[in-house]
Write a protein that binds this DNA or RNA. Structure first.
Lengths: 225, 225
DNA sequence: AACACCCCGTTCGATAATCGAACAAGGATA
DNA sequence: TATCCTTGTTCGATTATCGAACGGGGTGTT
């Protein structure tokens, strides 16, 4: 078994991006270097290269932050799925007054790819793209599992979600949060994603909400190429 | 004057991402290597590293595409601005039945950071994040310029936009497309962005639309921290 | 079957890209 | 002025990277 060599330089460059993403605001090169644990001159060279690709940009104050090239790159992640989901998600968010989002499986994780906040509710739950958790916890992940062919020894909540068409969870990802989700099943019968909403209220007609989310998920599937 | 050394390895790694973004669908490593004009074994090493950072992912068929880590990174580009703009944009898009988007200046360019398509119009103009053009062409760029302090020798359309509060353009970026935009002026008087809509119809009350866009831009500014 | 072709993934010595201590040049503070 | 801190660059030593070559698996063709 080999060591599967990795690229040190590329790794450090990507860590620069991650450090900038995790930071509160723009940073100096010295701060970045300290965080990445590399020599300053190394970070200089890398920052220049990242700047060429517009992945970082130097603000007017001389500090560095993430650049707009990332917006273009992110838009190219599953573009067909994103385009198909966008209208259905915003319609759903408006209808029910909750944040609606699209969750995609990646290995054993469920990752939020796209989220739409409702137009005008006093309070709503912010749910950011990039959020990642186990596919076995939370309605979005359960919905994805339920959309797949039945597996031996699968959890009870997955089986229930499969028969009723949507999944429900409470506090599995964030305490106090409830979530309802339905799988997006594409033409070939594969599960591409799930559509979900989150909320905190306890006076919600879950069954009706479930049907509404199922309809949104179907709409997404219909728009898929 | 030195050559401002750049990092070859990092550059090639980023080009891998760009190649994947530009591609129609997932690619083999050999295809990527050909496109990037680097040896296959180099691309192997880089792909492994990119995979560790979840910027690329290997599909079930063994092909590689962009990974979900990009969604998280993109969300960290001006997060405050994105959060502030999201609700106002989707409300605007719904109200007027047009695609609404947030445009940010980067040097001499105007770049689309965020876009929201309307819920249910038969036809609407798709406008993708990452679109970039000169800040001097098109309503979004003009609006940003108009939000800045008056400059000597500035174009007439900028001056007009400043007095009326919003900018209008026709076919400057895409032929046949009309666009109306208004600047987002933050608390410190700086111009962070502009809010814009695009459409093709010629029977639109431009003045009324302009007022509506101005209101949306104000709403975004109000939500800014 | 045997062949040809393409893609995958890895190995390893030569090489060139990278590393990082040291340097020069501003600001700021005292 | 002198001191300190930060930014940005230089350049020889080192080491990560490069890339030709290898082995193996899959698919389609003769």
């Amino acid at each position: 078994m080999t060591q599967s060599p990795h690229s040190q330089t590329l790794d450090r460059g990507l860590r620069v991006l991650e450090v900038l993403a995790a930071a509160e605001g723009p940073m100096t090169i010295a701060e970045i270097a300290a965080e990445v644990r590399a020599h300053r001159s190394i970070v200089y060279r890398m920052i220049r290269t990242l700047e060429d690709h517009r992945l970082v940009s130097r603000g007017a104050d001389g500090l560095y932050g993430l650049g707009l090239g990332l917006a273009a790159l992110a838009r190219s992640v599953s573009p067909a799925l994103q385009s198909a989901a966008m209208p259905a998600l915003s319609e759903l968010a408006d209808d029910v007054g909750m944040t609606a989002f699209l969750v995609v499986p990646e290995g054993d994780d469920a990752v939020t790819l796209l989220s739409v906040e409702p137009r005008r509710t006093a309070v709503h739950v912010a749910y950011r793209p990039g959020v990642r958790h186990s596919i076995h916890r939370g309605a979005p992940g359960i919905a994805i599992l339920a959309g797949r062919p039945p597996a031996a020894g699968e959890a009870a909540n997955v089986a229930r979600a499969r028969t009723q068409g949507w999944a429900y969870s409470q506090g599995e990802v964030l305490s106090g949060m409830r979530s309802v989700a339905a799988p997006v099943v594409d033409r070939r019968g594969g599960v591409a994603a799930s559509v979900a909403v989150v909320y905190v209220a306890d006076d919600v007609d879950t069954a009706a909400l479930g049907q509404r989310v199922v309809a949104a998920a179907k709409a997404v599937a219909t728009e898929m190429p």
